[in-house]
Amino acid sequence: MKHSISFTINGEKVHLEVEPHKTLLNMIREDLNLTGAKEGCGAGECGSCTVIVDGKAVNSCMMLAVEADGKEIITVEGLAKNGVLDALQESFINNAALQCGYCTPGMLMSAKALLMRNPKPSEEEIKEAIAGNLCRCTGYKVIVDAIKEAAEKNN
């Protein structure tokens, strides 16, 4: 049986009928065509599916779509506002904090959730926030630098 759910995603209200066994990630990608969030492992180990639900970073592969009912969701597609990039997006480009780009949306969302709850994070707090986001390309240093830079810019 499908469930009727309503939620906000990137500021837009959405009503959908979803099968209970559909993950939030699949709903976002397949029903809403927001393909920024990726499936890298399907088991909560790589973080490439990270989105923000009610202000908190979560692995969207480990949440059912029906659980999104009444929630407010932000995906990477919702980071830039009216064509203006988020400070994190700017700093990721400036620091070459991305290479293949596959982990980037998840990495950005973990970082965004961090800055939302803690505008002035320490290096340890940055590392804690992205410890669950695997990147095989960059070696992480530039990602940490980019998050620091965005935080400084915000303050």
Partner: peptide, 15 residues
């Protein structure tokens, strides 16, 4: 700066 940076940070790049 990376010419593919903008598409990647906005999640636009289609794999």
């Amino acid at each position: 700066k990376r010419v593919d940076g903008l598409d990647k940070v906005t999640g636009y790049t289609k794999y």
